[in-house]
Amino acid sequence: MTEEGPRLSARDMIERLEPSLSPWRRVRAVAALLAGLAGVVFVTALWWSEPGPLPGRTHLAFALLTVFCLAWAGYGTWLLTRRVPLFATDRVIAGWIALSVSLVTTAGLAGIAVQRDAGLGTALGVGGGFVAAALVLVVRAHARRAELLRRRRELTGGEQA
């Protein structure tokens, strides 16, 4: 004990920097898992209940939507199973999923707009807004992760905790 209070070990300080899974992160993980699973169920039910043969690009769209939903469900599952400090890795992964989905969706919407010869500006504007927002999230997540890792190195003297 010191005058300032009890001394914390480097490991305790690191755990305070980035707890393994706070209650708020657990709620986010469950929400991502449930939303992803609900999306998979909804999209595949819609896909397989469509009457008659569907065009190839419609199958592709349904497949991509299913993959997007599976990515979020996988992210939620992964996050719930972590028992160690993540140092904002969860934010980086979520940001990259969001950026990937935004880019693919924007490209698909732009392709449809070009094919139909209408609304390309709108598709690029709306999609560009989502891509920009996702890009901001990725940059912020990488910055937060770098900050936490730098702080961990300072606390441990450069060795891994």
Rank of each mutant, 00 (worst) to 15 (best):
V30Q: 05
G119E: 08
V139Y: 10
G74K: 03
R152Y: 01
A61N: 11
R152T: 06
A73S: 10
R25W: 13
R145A: 14
G157Y: 07
A94G: 02
G111L: 10
A123F: 04
M13R: 15
L135Y: 08
F62N: 11
V84I: 08
V30D: 03
A88E: 03
T58K: 12
A132H: 01
V67Q: 00
L79M: 15
A134K: 02
P23E: 08
A38P: 00
Q160E: 13
R28T: 14
A132P: 01
A107F: 14
E50R: 15
G119P: 06
L54A: 11
L60N: 04
I14D: 05
P53G: 13
G111A: 08
D90H: 09
A161L: 13
W72H: 12
L33S: 02
A118C: 03
L149E: 13
R153D: 15
F68G: 01
L46P: 01
T81S: 12
L79H: 08
E3S: 10
L109G: 14
G36E: 04
L33D: 00
A133F: 14
V27W: 12
V114W: 07
E4H: 06
V131C: 10
T44S: 15
A32T: 03
L65S: 04
L135I: 05
R145C: 05
A35F: 15
A161H: 07
L149R: 13
S49V: 01
I14C: 14
I97W: 09
E50N: 12
G127K: 02
L65A: 10
E3W: 11
F68M: 05
V138T: 06
G125P: 04
G95I: 02
R26W: 05
A161G: 13
P6E: 13
L70P: 02
L120I: 10
Q115G: 14
A98Q: 09
V126G: 02
A113E: 06
V114S: 07
E3V: 12
R82S: 06
M13V: 07
M1W: 12
A161C: 12
G158K: 01
I112C: 03
R151Y: 00
T105W: 10
G119L: 09
L86W: 04
H59A: 09
L54V: 05
R91S: 11
G125L: 03
R145I: 05
S9V: 02
S102P: 04
E4W: 03
V84T: 13
W72N: 07
L109W: 15
F130L: 11
R11V: 06
L34A: 15
G39N: 04
R153I: 00
